[in-house]
Amino acid sequence: MDVIFRKIKNLQRIQPDASWLIRQRSFLLSEIYGDQKPIKERKAVLAFPFFDFSKIFRPAFAVAFTIIILVSSFATVGAISASQNSLPGDFLYQVKTVLEKTQLTFTHDSASRTRLSVKFANQRMDEFTQMIQKPEKKEDIQKTVKGFTQQMVAVQQEMNILKEKNSEKAAEVAKLVQAQTPVYEEALIKGDEKLGYVLPGEKQGLKDDINQALEELNKTKELTNELTKEETSPIQETENETGNTEEIIVPGEKTEQTESVSIQFENLQPTTEEVNKVE
């Protein structure tokens, strides 16, 4: 009986076309309420601080704000949330990608930008796993893979910037990325196998893209391993007999830090010549 319940529950996964949902919503609301815009909406547009575009100097901001106004006047939260489930080839997919870029434009903090890039990588991976069910849409599948590769590069770039500013936060974010990488790897490998089965002679270009994605994923993994090891290598301080503090690194794999500490130690110790001079 459990099997039957599981099968029945799977009916919950049936969904309408996202574009139809949005169109019908607009149609219904205009039928019901006519052409009159509610007072709240009118005020929202006029009160928007950057309504006068001549005041915006950066083209990126102009594009982003135009998009925000268009999206907010075109439909409400329903449209934005509907676009989240869209896939390459869908009408709303452009809205989804533009919204992602807009989010990134308005995020300045490196840790937040890394987290956003991870979120978008998750989106691309989710799209990939859905798109491989439609192997005939080879170009759209390639888009998701290339999109994922771009996000991996973005994650690496942001983590490198964050590493320079705040290694502790970089390690924290690296752990988040580390948790995702096995999932990405498995999905890419399984997807590759599946596509090899359904598109035996046709998928060379796609295979190259998947290999590229795996390569960037490996680079991301290496970087996260490096960042998390830096954070987890404990350093103990003790006072040696001469009163100098000596940093002892507990055995680990952190040879770089060991080198820098030994240089530091050397600088603290007077040379024999200097000792002789004093004497």
Partner: peptide, 23 residues
């Protein structure tokens, strides 16, 4: 007269009603 409220009802129920009818 809140148009957004009806929109929210639509957002929540439209997929379910569609699914029911489609089946």
């Amino acid at each position: 007269g809140d148009r957004d409220a009806f929109g929210q009802l639509y957002d929540f129920y439209a997929p379910k009603i569609f699914r029911f009818i489609r089946l």
